[in-house]
Simulated assay, not measured.
Amino acid sequence: MQHAQKGFTLIELMIVVAIIGILAAVAVPAYQTYTVKARFTEVVSSASPYKLALETCFQELDSLTNCTNGSNGVPALTAAVANSNVAAASGAVTGNAPTAAIITMTAVNGTNGLAGETFTLTATATPGGSITWARGGTCLTRAAGPIC
């Protein structure tokens, strides 16, 4: 009388373990990149109040010359916030020209996979017209790939 095989052989189990190992080797780096991008999203979204304030300031003054931190409705520099991915003294707005202004946001340095990367929004305005925005910063030229 023959006994029916019950369970898996050692070879079958080793093949399954090898497949899981290969999948993990591909998935872990992709997940780490994903989490860094997700953390940097906080830095990008924190530029929104400054962007809105610059647009409002431009509409009121028809110039970006006096649209800087703490004046004409533009918020002051961002203070340190606990458990935040945005560095303190971030949100620098430079508006010293009638048709150009730059918003610079900086990520924290050395935690959560972030290394002090910057995110910039450059406003180019036409008097009596509108503002166009250009994205920039070190987040686009990061060695491990762009995160913004």
Rank of each mutant, 00 (worst) to 15 (best):
V74C: 03
D62Y: 08
T111Q: 11
A92G: 07
A18L: 12
T99S: 07
A80T: 07
I103K: 02
A143F: 11
A53F: 04
R135W: 04
A18D: 02
T65H: 11
V28I: 15
G110D: 01
P127W: 15
Y31W: 08
T33R: 15
G21P: 00
S63F: 10
A18N: 06
E117C: 10
S71E: 02
S90N: 04
S45M: 12
T126K: 10
A123Y: 07
A101I: 03
R135T: 10
N72T: 10
P127I: 15
L140S: 05
A79G: 13
N112A: 08
D62A: 14
V16T: 14
A143I: 12
N112M: 07
A88K: 03
T132K: 10
S90D: 00
T132A: 05
V36N: 01
L13Q: 09
A100K: 14
A82T: 14
N112P: 00
G137K: 13
V93M: 01
A24K: 14
M105D: 01
A24H: 08
T106P: 00
S46D: 09
L52G: 04
L140A: 08
A79I: 11
E42W: 05
A125M: 02
A25W: 09
M14W: 09
T126D: 04
T41C: 04
L140P: 00
F8D: 04
G128C: 07
G7C: 14
S45V: 14
R39A: 12
G136L: 02
Y31R: 09
V44K: 08
V86H: 06
V108G: 01
G95D: 02
S130L: 14
Q32S: 06
A79W: 10
V81T: 11
I131C: 01
G21F: 11
A82M: 06
A101L: 06
W133C: 01
R142A: 00
E12T: 13
T104S: 03
S90P: 00
V28W: 05
C57W: 08
E12F: 13
T124G: 02
P75C: 13
I15Q: 08
I11V: 15
E60M: 12
C57Y: 10
A123T: 08
F58L: 06
T111L: 09
G129H: 12
E42V: 15
G70A: 03
A4E: 06
E42S: 07
A18I: 09
L77M: 02
G113I: 12
P146L: 15
N112E: 05
A27W: 09
L77F: 00
N83Y: 07
P75M: 12
A125R: 08
N66I: 03
G128T: 12
A92K: 13
F8A: 05
T35Y: 08
T124C: 01
A82H: 12
K6Q: 10
L10M: 05
K37H: 00
G129Q: 08
S130F: 10
E117K: 15
K37A: 03
V108D: 00
G91Y: 03
T118N: 03
L64W: 03
G129I: 12
